[in-house]
């Protein structure tokens, strides 16, 4: 782990050279009288693994929900710039359009399609990259048949990559917990994202599973070139994985920086009351 100011400087210089692929400015979200997010700024750059941490109820998941179009934010601007494509504003887009634009997410409390098979779950992820319609489905023209074959192949390849190929035909609801979390990642990956949003991917996992997850996330970044923004409570995982960390508390950003900086930041330690910062 590189710490200290030189590392930060390098990172900053590197970033100055290019535009962030996700940039969020003064994002604010009110629920009735409660301010869940308070003018939050955040940026993610190409090929980064960024972590969003903070105590429970700090507004991390709300942040995800705003970016992915589930909640309309009260104020603020959200921009994406997929590599090689022109920037798009996310404000006001429906969730499915956000996904089509290359942001994919997983959920904190697993939301698979329980009564569909593992393969089908991944195939659903491919949905927005396919085009066959009703008539094609009914009369199975050649294009549809080919497309279907391709989907099955691609989805299966994806399962292999994530290490779930043994379960292809099992119902999603019958998978062990850790495998369900991984299936969520596989399903999100199937949508061809450039940025993957993981909401507590290690929650409920044992040590062994967490270690595998760590490797998997790094592999996704290195081999697929997908940047990652994750919410996580497992500090060990966060510290070993992340390039940069954002800390939120009560909807406000209280710190940002490299793992080493965050570990020594008094505001962060205060927010956590000193707990769990012994990575």
């Amino acid at each position: 782990m590189c710490g200290g100011s030189t590392g930060l400087k390098n990172a900053k210089q590197q970033h100055n050279a290019m535009e962030p692929i996700l940039e969020v400015k003064t994002l604010t979200m009110d629920f009735g009288g409660l301010r869940a997010l308070d003018s939050l700024d955040l940026a993610v750059y190409q090929n980064e693994i960024v972590a969003l941490i903070g105590p429970n109820g700090a507004g991390k998941t709300t942040f995800f929900n705003c970016i992915t179009g589930l909640f309309p934010p009260t104020k603020g601007e959200m921009l994406i710039a997929p590599p090689g494509k022109k920037p798009t504003k996310l404000n006001g887009l429906k969730p499915n359009i956000v996904t089509a634009n290359g942001l994919a997410r997983t959920f904190q409390n697993i939301r698979l399609f329980p009564n569909m098979t593992v393969l089908e779950n991944v195939m659903i992820g491919r949905h927005c990259r396919l085009s066959s319609g009703i008539l094609g489905a009914a009369f199975r023209n050649r294009a549809t048949v080919l497309e279907e074959e391709k989907v099955v192949e691609e989805s299966y390849a994806m399962l292999k990559k994530i290490g779930l190929d043994a379960f292809v035909n099992d119902f999603a609801k019958n998978l062990p917990y850790g495998a369900q979390r991984r299936l969520e990642i596989a399903r999100a990956m199937a949508t061809d994202p450039f940025l993957l949003l993981l909401d507590e991917p290690a929650a409920g996992m044992n040590l062994q599973e967490t270690r595998e997850l760590d490797e998997l996330i790094v592999r996704i970044r290195d081999e697929e070139g997908i940047s990652i923004l994750l919410i996580e409570h497992d500090m060990k995982l966060v510290m070993s994985l992340s390039d940069r960390i954002f800390v939120v508390d009560y909807g406000k950003k209280i710190a940002q920086g490299t793992p080493a900086e965050i570990q020594n930041n008094p505001a962060v330690i205060k927010a956590y009351l000193g707990e769990e910062i012994d990575a």
Partner: peptide
């Protein structure tokens, strides 16, 4: 919700 998040209209 998951369905929408997977890009389905």
């Amino acid at each position: 919700i998951a369905c929408q998040a997977m890009g389905i209209d």
